[in-house]
């Protein structure tokens, strides 16, 4: 290809580019036969909903539909940022996602570093098999297990009562402990899986570095600090950018399956509110405005973190 190109440009042949163009055109016919359904799919199911976001600037009603409903400008957003209830929901979305990100982020790294120090293959395999498993379980299973274990009659409360004589603690129904269970269950489900990418990065570190460090008298801690962590730093940065980009997407499944009416004050987030108030109470415009706000924040965060990362030569694009 590139040879032909150079010849065509440098050799001054007039007919060559034309023939190439015709060949390229012919070549493109099968591509577009394959690709047309994909264009339709993305227009219909991805870009049409983006267009549907205009209802965030309208007062949607079923009779007039998306196009006929009256415009209200930024009216929905004014409601959104003046109503204490919606403000609390936006705050919850931020709090839950930022806490889950900040507290959860180091766990996969820690797990990968620990696994990397294991010499016995069977032990390493066994641990990996078990810690990857929760990733494949749906949130309904994970929350079902959490609710069963931590309920008032659950095994944790029974063990506390038997061993320590404590009276039952309402783990699921007080905000602080619910928050801990929320973050903890996220780590339980995701940390093992998140470690895979770091393990891949760790395997590319040159083993001779450890040997020479060891000969120079560096202990394990110093080796981890000065060889292991710098070795996986680029991966850490990339994973962090991706996580920050998803920060506003507190998983609907996780929150919805874990929450209960006693902790709505902390657990109601944009997606669950949209489902309950938007779809079930038909507040389409207000919740669309919330969704748009959520999407925009997410987009801005990705762009900012990527710009920062690019300054250190590690951007995604």
């Amino acid at each position: 290809m590139s040879m032909a190109e150079r010849q065509a440009v440098g050799g001054g042949a007039v007919r060559m580019p034309q023939r190439r163009n015709r060949r390229r055109l012919r070549q493109n016919i099968p591509y577009f036969i394959l690709f047309t359904p994909i264009i339709v799919y993305f227009l219909l199911f991805k870009y049409a909903p983006m267009g549907g976001l205009v209802i965030a600037f309208k007062d949607y009603n079923f009779a007039d539909g998306v196009f006929g409903s009256p415009w209200v400008g930024l009216g929905q957003f004014e409601t959104l940022f003046s109503n204490p209830q919606t403000l609390r929901i936006i705050r919850n979305t931020f709090v839950l996602s930022v806490l889950a990100l900040l507290i959860g982020f180091p766990f996969p790294i820690l797990l990968a570093v620990l696994l990397n120090e294991v010499g016995r293959v069977w032990f390493k395999r066994g641990v990996q098999t078990l810690v990857y498993l929760p990733h494949f379980l749906s949130w309904v299973i994970v929350s079902g297990i959490v609710i069963t274990i931590f309920s008032i009659e659950g095994v944790i409360n029974n063990l506390f009562a038997d061993w320590l004589g404590w009276s039952p603690i309402q783990f699921l129904y007080s905000e602080g402990s619910w928050l801990a269970l929320f973050i903890g269950s996220g780590i339980w489900k995701g940390a093992g899986w998140g470690a895979i990418i770091y393990l891949a990065a760790l395997s590319s570190i040159d083993p001779s570095l450890y040997e020479s460090a060891s000969i120079d008298g560096a202990n394990k801690w110093k080796q981890i600090r000065h060889i292991t962590l710098p070795g996986i730093a680029p991966t850490i940065v990339i994973v962090f950018i991706l996580s920050v980009g998803n920060v506003m997407e507190v998983g609907f499944d996780q929150v919805y399956t874990l929450q209960n009416s006693a902790v709505f004050g902390i657990s109601e987030v944009i997606s669950t509110y949209t489902y309950k108030i938007g779809l079930q109470s038909l507040q389409f415009s207000l919740t669309s405005a919330m969704g748009l706000f959520e999407s925009l924040i997410g987009l801005v965060l990705v762009l900012i973190t990527n710009t920062i990362a690019r300054r250190y030569g590690q951007g995604l694009w």
């Binding site: 199911f45 049409a48 909903p49 999407s295 987009l299």
Partner: peptide, 19 residues
Amino acid sequence: LAIIFTMLFTGGIIPNYLV
């Protein structure tokens, strides 16, 4: 790029529901 953009920005629950 147009496809990657749909990863970064989405219409959200309600507009999807309407479609």
